[in-house]
Nucleic acid binder design. Structure first.
Length: 582
DNA sequence: GTAGGGTTAG
């Protein structure tokens, strides 16, 4: 308990203040009395022995400023007692500023001790609920989502009622942080605790489910919200379309189009965001003609393409090798007085880098400074990757060193670019040095780093070492991807260890990762190389039975290895009839 | 007091 005398009114008012207290008939507060008589040592002894509640009551009764009392007391119980007093007098903005201060500065109190303090010093369910509700919101606003979710859970245990005002931001923060399980947990509990969701609640939930790839569940929620009396709005539909667009790579773009039709049929008018989402989706699905069609349709509807529209198209064209067309769009947008931002620059710089035009990339990079657009870490990463893939390692490292001078600091991707470059050039030891350096900068190795290292070890025939890294992935609580497993399977196949490759596939499926086209291609190629064409053929049939669509690479393997060796695959007719995806 | 779109690395 630390109390300072400036909790009380200024010295020159003290006498008047004391007289006022006496005249009001209040019993002379001991603390006030001691302070008035400036008996500091007695005061100290008194404070050390007194019960916090007594002191608090005296302070409140003496008219001391509640806010100051709170700020100078280090006891949770006293603090929350003050909050209750404020809640009774409806001084909510003061409570908010107290809590904000508390959440920012207090790093020692656990959520459970806070709840204990709140519940012991109050009796009113309503007041407690209000304070707890504000506490949850304050945690979220201060980016302490983990404490927010804990408070949400405890509020349930204590039976305090939260409001949609704090549950929505909590849900939104959980979605942004990718805490997928908690998103569904909070929503389910809101319903259970009769916290009525609103349209925004549903939109946040749908957005979360889309990010998790649970598109079917997201669609179910759209039906649920109608039952609650909320009709999906333009944001709901845009979120769903965006969800399907992100799945464009696995052929879900047609579903995005279906949602668009549904949206129009329900009388919701697509806006710029709708069109931009679709354009970006088609671009990432390498379907530039569809993207351009939507671009035209958008203008027909009287909607003006904006920066985001051009950024998507420029990026899409660049990734498809159509850098010249990207440059003409750049010119078009500048004519429309849309000023390229760092995102636009990054897209085009990336286009030059990916298409072996490092001089042009450099020119554009230098132009940014002249145009007053600052490069960011993505610009640097793009340039570093471009230079190292062009085998200009000195330039890549010069870029890396120069970013520090501009106050831009490397992130995990920067190191992944460098590590990947060093591995490609065979400098494994150097690559590991950069793994250490990123640790030194407080950056955590991510799955991409592991995939790079695993790929490099496998290509050197050190599959056993690579498998040890797979175990390390789990220890770091990361989740291996299809790429991780496919790389390892390929590693085993290249060293001719087909048995180990099949065991790795089994492990992959056990982890819930179903073998994909790449997995089959790698395995089929492995069996072909060993001359086991019948087994390869069996795998090919298995792949088709599972509904996987062979791609160009499957076709090449079958043609080169099987057909040319006089082996006619059982599924030949089947394989040649399916549409081969590039 | 909260919801939707654009840029990098495997």
């Amino acid at each position: 308990m630390h109390l300072k005398c400036h909790v009380f009114p200024a010295r020159r008012n003290k006498q008047a203040f004391f007289r006022q207290l006496c005249s009001a008939g209040t019993p002379i507060p001991t603390i006030t009395d001691l302070i008035y008589r400036q008996q500091w040592s007695k005061l100290k002894t008194f404070l050390q022995n007194a019960d916090p509640n007594t002191i608090l009551q005296e302070l409140i009764a003496s008219g001391a400023d509640a806010e100051l009392t709170f700020r100078h007391s280090h006891s949770l119980e006293v603090s929350f007692k003050v909050l209750h007093t404020l809640a009774y007098t409806r001084k909510y903005s003061k409570i908010r500023s107290f809590l904000d201060d508390f959440v920012k500065k207090d790093t020692s109190s656990s959520v459970s001790s806070v709840f204990h303090a709140i519940s012991v010093c109050a009796d009113s369910f309503c007041v407690n609920s209000i304070i707890v509700d504000m506490l949850v919101l304050t945690y979220v606003q201060n980016k302490k989502t983990h404490l927010g979710i804990e408070a949400f859970k405890r509020a349930g245990d204590y039976g305090f009622k939260l409001s949609v005002v704090s549950c929505n931001p909590l849900l939104s923060a959980l979605v942004k942080e990718g805490e997928t399980e908690d998103v569904e947990f909070v929503y389910r509990n809101m319903i259970k605790r009769r916290i009525e969701p609103n349209l925004i609640t549903f939109n946040i939930l749908i957005s979360g489910l889309c990010k998790m790839g649970k598109l079917n569940k997201a669609k179910d929620v759209v039906e649920d919200m109608k039952v609650w009396g909320f009709l999906p709005n333009v944001i709901t539909y845009n979120t769903l379309i965006g969800g399907y667009c992100k799945m464009g790579r696995i052929g879900k773009m047609y579903k995005a189009g279906a949602i668009l039709k549904e949206m129009v049929a329900s009388g919701i008018c697509p806006d710029e965001v709708t069109f931009n989402t679709l354009i970006d989706g088609y671009c990432k699905d390498d379907n530039l003609s569809a993207a351009m069609k939507v671009f035209g349709e958008m203008q027909n509807q009287g909607l003006k393409p904006n920066l985001v529209t051009y950024n998507s198209l420029i990026s899409g064209l660049c990734m498809n090798g159509k850098v010249n067309e990207a440059v003409s769009l750049w010119d078009e947008m500048t004519l429309l007085c849309l000023k390229p931002t760092v995102v636009t620059y990054n897209a085009l710089v990336n286009g030059f880098c990916k298409n072996n035009m490092m001089n042009e990339a450099r020119q554009l990079f230098d132009d940014m400074g002249k145009q007053g657009v600052s490069p960011n870490v993505i610009t640097y990463n793009t340039m570093i990757d471009g230079y190292s893939k062009a085998k200009k390692m000195e330039d890549a490292f010069a870029m890396y060193h120069s970013m520090f001078e501009r106050g831009i600091f490397p992130d995990v991707s920067t190191y992944n670019c460098l590590i990947s470059a060093l591995c490609r050039e065979g400098y494994m030891a150097e690559a590991w040095k950069y793994v250490d350096e990123m640790h030194g900068r407080g950056l955590r190795v991510d799955l991409v780093t592991y995939n790079i290292l695993i790929g490099s070890l496998c290509s050197k025939g050190e599959v056993r070492k690579a498998v040890r890294l797979l175990d390390e992935i789990y220890r770091k609580r990361l989740c291996p991807s299809h790429l991780t497993f496919n790389t390892l399977i390929e590693g085993y196949c290249t060293e001719g260890n087909l048995k180990a490759a099949m065991i790795m596939r089994a492990r992959m499926e056990k982890e819930g990762k179903r073998a994909n086209v790449v997995t089959y291609n790698v395995l089929i190629k492995g069996y072909c190389k060993k001359g086991k064409l019948e087994d390869a053929n069996e795998l090919l049939n298995e792949m088709l039975e599972k509904g996987l669509v062979p791609n160009k690479i499957t076709y090449e393997i079958v043609k080169e290895e099987m057909l040319e060796k006089g082996f006619i695959p059982d599924i030949e007719g089947h394989l040649y009839n399916v549409s081969v995806k590039s």
